[in-house]
Amino acid sequence: MAKVFIYPATSLVLSDLVERWGHEPLGAALAIRERIQTASLDSPPLQMTPEEPKKGLKWAAVEVPAGVRGRMALYGPMIEEADAAIIINDADLAFGCMGCSRTNELVMYLLRKRTDIPLLDIKYPSSEEEGIAFVASIKEFLAALGGGEDA
């Protein structure tokens, strides 16, 4: 079972397909869950503390807005942990202002910089033919990772 980082990190489709074919999707929910279930932290609603932007310094410079560094404290460890990654390039839902948008750009940059892991670049389907190609390319990519078991 490989750990596959998904972008957009909240994607239902990617999360489902990766899990369906027996791998572990690394998305935003896992990092959020880890924080909200940690009793020692006490900073609702997301349990983000002033420590998070400091952790984010590992991936983003100090001049970068704290919002980006805080988000990188969630995504950075998962990017390092990933065995593979899938990026949907035209994800309209992953829009945002300074924090979200710059974090998204940084996440994609860091994934592409990791030349040691396989990466799949795709786009959302807009027809049935593209839907078949979309699913088939993900299935083939995940099969090549090996070790998957059907969910």
């Binding site: 389907p125 839907g131 190609a133 088939a136």
Partner: peptide
């Protein structure tokens, strides 16, 4: 909002899942 956006393309994904389950699909890379 993300779920709402992706809900619109689920029918394409379902079609893809049905096709890939029933036969081997040759993938043309994007």
């Amino acid at each position: 909002y993300g779920h709402e956006f992706e809900s619109r393309i689920l029918r394409y994904i379902s079609r893809g899942l049905e096709e890939t389950a029933s036969r081997t699909v040759t993938v043309n890379k994007f």
